[in-house]
Each structure stands twice: as structure tokens, then as C-alpha cells.
């Protein structure tokens, strides 16, 4: 934000030419911190799209409060990512001057919001995972990462309380709310597997105690999710597909459109300030 415009532009051009390639594990810490930051940035941007459109005022405020938390968390993780990379990119450069294929978020978070049920089922899947991941990261051997995770964990705990409450109410609610929530679940289930995928980045960092094994989060997540969905009278679809690729920069067609909207101001007016 404080950099001169020309520096940002040059860095951006450089990043495009020599940016991380698919599955690059040469700087696993940078890769991982981008995943953490990007999941939050993209989900935060999606949730902000509910501003002025939620079914009731209280939910409008709730979803935008969530958005604020996620964008704040993203700033902290991306700032640390920039430091890990050591190329002079700060959180703003990473958020606004990277192209779609440099984003490392899971595909789950970039999907369009759909209806309120779709947004809340997606949110619950994310939050139930986020609490487990952040709890493990709060014990990371990387002190700053552990500190940011401990801060974010407090927020994740009230996020999951809220999203779980809505999945329960919508699933076990009216015929219409049940139908829409079950449909959201059917559409979203195959996107959850990506959250637990292991790869070189995880193995390199887990060896030093920086991150937990991602796969180890699967069992406690499924236990919590299955229990809540059963209470909500919802049925997990018989769908073993795992839609993946986001962590390697291969995204759905939806991400580019969203980034265009999100990034246009800093890209059209580099270095602009209020």
C-alpha cells in the first residue's frame, strides 16, 4: 500500500513470468500461507456480496461481520506470506496484483453464493474444518503463524456456532428450507475433499511441526458434520468425487470474474490512496 505504483506493477509483471508453478514446493511456507490467506480472502469477498441482499437484516450484518473477520485474517496471513517469499510483496500486492492461476484457495470458497442455504452449508463445511485447522496451527512451531491462528480460532468458534445453527434450522425447518438445504449439500459435498488433501507442501511443513497432517483433520470433521447433518434431517449424498485443483491454481470459471471485480480499482489506479 505504501509502495510506489511502479514497483507494484513491476513486481506483478515479474510474478506473472516467474511466479510459482503448479504444485511448487520450493517455498512450502509461502505456498501454505497463500492457501490460508486466499481461502479467507475469497470467502470473505463472496460473503461481502450478501451485503444488502440477505433475507433478514440480522443475517446481512452477520454475513458481513464474517466477511470482515475473514478479510482481516487474510491480511495477516498474506502479510506473513509476503515476508516468507522475501520478494517485497506485501498483503495488498498479493491480494490485488496476482492473477487467478496464482491463487491457492480451495474451489469450495470461490463458488457463487447461490441461495441462503447454499451459502450457509458451504460456510458450515468451511467453519467446521477451520476450527480444527486453526486449533492445530495454534500449536505450530512457527511462532507468528501460531499467534495469528490462535487469534483467528476465537473467531472461527463463533463462526461455526452460527453456521451450524443455521444448517440445523434450515434442514429441520420447513419443507422448502429442507429441500433447498439438501440440494445445497448435494452440490457442495464433492468440494469438501480438497480441504484434506495431502501434498508436498504439507509434507515439507509437517515434518518441522509447522502444520498438522491435513488428512488427520478429516475424521474429527466428518464426525462433527455427520452428527449435525443427522440432527438437521439431511442426508449426505452418495458422491465420492473429490473436486480439486484450487491449491495448484486451477480454478472454476467463477474465480476470474470475482477477481476482476475485486481487483479493478488497485489495478486501474496503482498506488491509489483514499
Amino acid at each position: 500500500m505504501t509502495e510506489p505504483a511502479s514497483a507494484s506493477v513491476t513486481e506483478h509483471a515479474g510474478a506473472r513470468a516467474a511466479g510459482p508453478t503448479a504444485g511448487d514446493a520450493s517455498n512450502p511456507l509461502f505456498e501454505f500461507l497463500c492457501r490460508m490467506g486466499d481461502d479467507r480472502l475469497i470467502l470473505g469477498q463472496r460473503l461481502a456480496q450478501w451485503c444488502g441482499h440477505a433475507p433478514i437484516l440480522e443475517e446481512d450484518i452477520a454475513l458481513t461481520n464474517f466477511s470482515l473477520d475473514f478479510v482481516g485474517q487474510a491480511a495477516a496471513f498474506l502479510k506473513l506470506a509476503g515476508e516468507a517469499e522475501g520478494q517485497g510483496r506485501d498483503e495488498d500486492a498479493l491480494a490485488f496484483l496476482r492473477d487467478e492461476n496464482a491463487f491457492r484457495n480451495a474451489k469450495l470458497v470461490e463458488l457463487p453464493n447461490g441461495d441462503f442455504a447454499f451459502t450457509l452449508v458451504r460456510q458450515y463445511f468451511f467453519d467446521a474444518w477451520d476450527v480444527l485447522l486453526l486449533d492445530a496451527l495454534s500449536r505450530s512451531t512457527h511462532a507468528t503463524l501460531a499467534g495469528i491462528a490462535a487469534k483467528a480460532l476465537k473467531e472461527a468458534k463463533y463462526h461455526v456456532r452460527h453456521s451450524a445453527g443455521w444448517v440445523l434450522r434450515l434442514g429441520d425447518g420447513t419443507e422448502e428450507s429442507h429441500r433447498r438445504t439438501q440440494q445445497a449439500l448435494n452440490e457442495l459435498w464433492s468440494y469438501t475433499g480438497e480441504l484434506f488433501e495431502s501434498d508436498e507442501v504439507e509434507r515439507a511443513l509437517a515434518a518441522d511441526g509447522v502444520v498438522p497432517s491435513f488428512a488427520s483433520l478429516r475424521a474429527p470433521w466428518e464426525t462433527a458434520v455427520r452428527d449435525l447433518l443427522a440432527q438437521a434431517t439431511l442426508v449426505i449424498p452418495d458422491d465420492a468425487r473429490v473436486v480439486t485443483g484450487g491449491r495448484r491454481g486451477r480454478h472454476t470459471e467463477y474465480l476470474g470474474h470475482m477477481l476482476a471485480e475485486m481487483q479493478i480499482l488497485p489495478r486501474s489506479h496503482p498506488g491509489a490512496t483514499w
Binding site: G72, A76, K151
Partner: peptide, 8 residues
């Protein structure tokens, strides 16, 4: 230290 991660 921030109160909330996104506190403006």
C-alpha cells in the same frame, strides 16, 4: 494486538 482480525 488486534481485538478482532478485521477490526477497521
Amino acid at each position: 494486538t488486534p481485538t478482532y482480525s478485521g477490526c477497521p
